[in-house]
Design a protein around this nucleic acid. Structure first.
Lengths: 132, 132
DNA sequence: TACAAAATGCAACTTCGTTGCATTTGAAAA
DNA sequence: TTTTCAAATGCAACGAAGTTGCATTTTGTA
């Protein structure tokens, strides 16, 4: 398990209190967190916009991945890359009642999935919806 | 291929000009359409809110299914149910550049996917992201 | 310490979607 | 055909999510 500082260093991102706090929360979470979740729970106070930008930066860097919940709000989760897995593919369980999003590790069986002609596959997202 | 009138009758929904127009567009489309797409293209003029409500009604009835694009805007597509397919599962190709969403018919290989204990699977959505 | 680039804060704005209430319309009964 | 009522529509106002531009502060380096 990596520490916030190491992750920032590894991606040549400046170390700030907010960034460390955000990473800490997301490393500890077993599920995707929304902007709102984070702004509630962070002990570090910050501007709404800054938090949005922080999340973007992490997403661009590939540290986090974004998942849309059924209501269209973005949730972010730390991108683990278990061995043998396609870097850019994810499987999630989405609860239709509480809207929580859990990351799963079952992408294996999807490797061979083929796309129609004229399309170029980049990333695969599987959402299993149901109730937790 | 069903006609708008038949679909409405089948679901015991009142026949209105807007509903027929929306169904017509979506039956003809080979991809998911957003609220904005529809309000631009419909020859029938209508209130913003009414269109939102129309889409909800169709979604509740199971006539349409909603897909979130990566920016968090909802797109709607007519729900075809090819034989042998799980009614509530869908596969889509999402273009990361133009944001268009195309329905695919390759759900077959996902049937056996199992979810961790404590979860109840209801629906399976596969999004293949890439460029078209 | 001094400096430049990057990060933050603030204000204003846009888009998507919702809610409450008044009005109109579809379709079934008289 | 006319009457009737629930359901559909329109309108106004609101709320949440996310963005943009610009001024200020902070980080990391020289």
């Amino acid at each position: 398990m990596s520490r916030p500082e190491d992750i920032l260093q590894q991606h040549r991102l400046k170390h700030t209190r907010l960034r460390k706090a955000v990473l800490e929360k997301l490393l500890a979470a077993d599920k995707g967190l929304s902007h709102q979740d984070l702004s509630k729970d962070l002990e570090v106070s910050c501007n709404r916009v800054t938090l949005f930008r922080t999340l973007h930066v992490f997403e661009e860097a590939g540290i986090l991945h974004k998942i849309m919940d059924p209501d269209g709000t973005s949730k972010y989760a730390y991108s683990t890359h278990p061995e043998g897995s396609d870097t850019h593919s994810h499987a999630h369980f989405v609860c239709l009642y509480c809207k929580e999003i859990f990351c799963l590790n079952e992408v294996a069986l999807l490797k061979g999935l083929k796309v129609p002609k004229g399309f170029e596959k980049v990333q695969l997202d599987v959402q299993i919806k149901g109730y937790c």
